[in-house]
């Protein structure tokens, strides 16, 4: 809150003549301004609560019928009215994990380069470019995924992977293009800017004397970076990773377009699958019957709760990392 000096026109002032009506007018304006902004702020709180409330209430039919089995059942059969979320949870987790596996090394590498090696001006402009990646709409990532990435993976990457790692169960089976693998790769590009830009900030916030102490002890620049600066900033880096994870779990369009939309659980990353957000996007408008709709809403509830927890953790870590730094 911005601090104001105690003002002259508080209610305590002795009233009198014209000044009195002027002061009263000021006081009314004061109250109105306060109320209007308070109502707006309360609305934000209400909307957020309302989202949770609606998801909870509207998923009642499904929750009562299936209970916690909903989360561990593999069947998704709208005709028989049997709904289980496991294939979607599996697909969501696998694609998000794969995207982190690609984005963490690359993102952290970029952040280290931008924070430790690049001159500040160069680093700032490159970071701006990387942040533009976050501004690209997800449906455009989907478009590029379908028409560029999938054919590329099919022609170049997957044959090599199969030749080298084909003995592993995760790289077996026929590759049709749309798959967990394609979705994970698209997601990794989408979450990269979050990891790079937040990690770079926390790396830059590491005090100079930490670096100087290590260099004075004879550490090379890389040793200093890897053994001193990165551990010092680890909480903030973890925070950026959790932020990216929450993003990856909730991402809808790009995943829907390349994951294959098949409700099954396969060990192979090359098989088509499905994710929570994708099944909601595809089936919600066509769902008939309260059980079907409420099952889809329950999937939304699962997604909401999971991203809520992960975002909360991310925020705590980033707050802990930037303690004493800039405000907020």
């Amino acid at each position: 809150m911005a601090t104001y000096p105690s003002t002259a026109n508080s209610r305590a002032l002795p009233p009198g003549g014209r000044a009195r009506s002027f002061l009263r007018r000021g006081q009314v304006g004061e109250d109105v301004a306060y109320l209007v902004t308070l109502v707006a702020a309360a609305t934000i709180f209400l909307i957020t609560s309302l989202i949770f409330y609606e998801l909870f209430v509207q998923s009642a039919v499904s929750r009562q019928k299936f209970g916690f089995h909903f989360l561990f059942t593999q069947t998704w059969d709208p005709i028989a009215g049997n709904f289980g979320a496991l294939p979607f949870i599996y697909g969501t987790v696998v694609t998000a994990a794969l995207s982190l596996l690609i984005a963490i090394p690359q993102g952290l590498g970029s952040a280290i380069f931008l924070a430790e090696l690049a001159p500040r001006r160069v680093s700032d402009s490159l970071t701006f470019l990387i942040e533009l990646l976050a501004a690209v709409p997800s449906v455009i990532y989907g478009l590029l995924g379908i028409f560029i990435l999938v054919p590329f993976l099919q022609a170049r990457v997957v044959p090599v992977l199969k030749a080298v790692f084909g003995f592993l169960p995760i790289f077996q089976g026929v590759f049709y293009g749309v798959s967990y693998f394609s979705a994970g790769v698209v997601l990794s590009v989408m979450i990269m800017p979050f990891i790079v830009s937040v990690s770079r900030e926390v790396l830059l916030a590491v005090p100079k004397d930490q670096r100087e102490a290590s260099l004075a002890l004879g550490g090379s620049r890389w040793q200093t970076t890897w053994h001193v600066v990165v551990p010092y900033a680890l909480k903030g880096i973890m925070g950026s990773i959790f932020l990216a994870l929450a993003r990856a779990l909730g991402e809808t369009m790009a995943v829907t377009m390349v994951i294959g939309n098949t409700p099954q659980i396969k060990a192979s990353l090359l098989a088509p699958g499905y994710s929570i957000a994708a099944v909601i996007a595809n089936e919600f408008t066509e769902a008939v019957g309260s059980l079907y709709i409420s099952s889809l809403i329950e999937l939304g509830l699962v997604l909401f709760v999971v991203t809520f927890i992960i975002n909360g953790l991310a925020r705590l870590m980033i707050m802990a990392a930037s303690r004493g730094g800039a405000h907020s």
Partner: peptide
């Protein structure tokens, strides 16, 4: 509440506006 709202997946917002 604001941070939480910012983190809500967009598809979930779609569901809630549908029901409301």
């Amino acid at each position: 509440a604001t941070d939480l709202l910012n983190g809500v997946p967009s598809i979930v917002i779609g569901i809630v506006v549908y029901t409301l």
